[in-house]
Simulated assay, not measured.
Amino acid sequence: MSSIIWLASYPKSGNTWTRTFINNLLLDPDEPVDINVLSDLTPGDARKSWYEKAGGMPYHRLSMGQVISLRPKVHQLIADLQEDKVFVKTHSIYGQLHGVPQITMDCTAGAIYVIRNPLDVVISVSSHFGLPIDGAIKLMGDTNAFLDEAPMLGNIRQYFGSWSGNANSWTHFDREKMHVMRYEDMQDKPEETFGAMVKFLKLDLPEERIAKAIKFSSFDVARKQEEEKGFKEQSDKNEKFFRVGKAGQWKEVLTDAQVDQITDMHQVTMKYFGYLPK
């Protein structure tokens, strides 16, 4: 029976990087996989077309209540895309919305949760959504936060909550079926970090293939592709999706007051994941 491996994260935390690695790992190409076809192998759960198929009518005719109630059916449609496992991107919390599970466990095999220091996330969120830093801080503290519909991407409204709420919700997922990756470890020790993910997925692959996938999914490769042919998942609020790709930017960008505000707001979760500034 087919089932989903969720690629979950708060927005701008390394989900696209993870998907790029998985594409290059599984396809084992001679050249880096085109970033504009990532969704072919690792689709997102927010496409309007899924809900139109599940509901049997154009998306604009569906009420928000109907969209929410269709979520389990949508997840089963996605799970059925492949005979075995299918990797699916989501920014949703691991919880319920109006009584409907945001993650349908009946068609779930496991999850990879990608987390990033909120002090750096806020800078990327600010750029991606066209918000001032203080506006991004407010968004990341909003327990009811959502990504509005994205007509250009064909996506529905996505509820992801606050940074802490999103991360904390996924700590309740079955620990034996979930693997957590820190963005900073992906950058500082890629062989160990991505290798651990491959082991979690129980993929028996040679080290050379893993190393090639790491190389082909690097920030520099992705940024070069975006410069040459654009990236269809890019926001219309800024010029680049792949902006800097470096941990620790907050030390040069955020004011002391902004650092204090973020750490006060997310202190418990930051401590749990090792992100409290020394």
Rank of each mutant, 00 (worst) to 15 (best):
S3L: 10
L7F: 02
P11W: 11
P11V: 07
G14N: 09
G14T: 05
G14V: 05
N15R: 06
N15E: 11
N15H: 10
N15S: 15
T18A: 15
T20Y: 11
N23I: 00
L25M: 09
L25T: 07
L25R: 06
L26Q: 05
L27N: 09
L27H: 08
D28E: 12
I35L: 15
T42H: 06
D45P: 09
A54K: 07
G55V: 06
M57S: 15
M57E: 14
P58I: 09
M64I: 03
M64S: 07
I68Q: 05
L70Q: 10
K73C: 01
K73G: 07
L81D: 04
Q82A: 08
E83Q: 12
K89G: 07
I93K: 15
H98L: 12
P101R: 05
Q102H: 01
T104W: 12
C107M: 04
G110C: 06
A111N: 01
A111G: 01
Y113A: 02
I115T: 08
I115Q: 03
I115V: 15
P118G: 04
L119D: 05
D120E: 10
S124M: 08
F129S: 13
F129L: 15
L131P: 07
P132E: 10
D134I: 14
G135V: 07
A136M: 06
I137C: 04
K138S: 13
L139K: 15
L139G: 07
T143D: 14
N144V: 02
A145L: 07
F146K: 14
L147R: 13
P151F: 05
L153Q: 15
N155G: 13
F160L: 11
S169P: 04
S169T: 06
H172R: 11
D174F: 12
E176S: 10
E176L: 03
K177Y: 10
M178R: 13
V180M: 15
V180C: 13
M181H: 08
M186W: 00
Q187D: 13
D188W: 03
K189E: 14
E191Y: 00
T193F: 08
F194G: 05
G195I: 05
A196W: 08
V198R: 02
K199E: 06
F200C: 03
R209G: 05
K212N: 02
A213F: 06
I214N: 12
F216P: 01
S217A: 15
S217M: 02
D220V: 10
V221N: 03
A222D: 14
R223L: 09
E226D: 01
E227K: 09
E228R: 12
K229G: 15
G230A: 03
K232V: 01
S235R: 08
D236C: 06
E239L: 10
F241W: 01
G245W: 05
G245R: 01
K246L: 04
K246P: 02
W250L: 05
V259M: 14
T263V: 15
D264E: 13
M265P: 04
M265T: 11
V268C: 00
K271H: 08
K271Q: 14
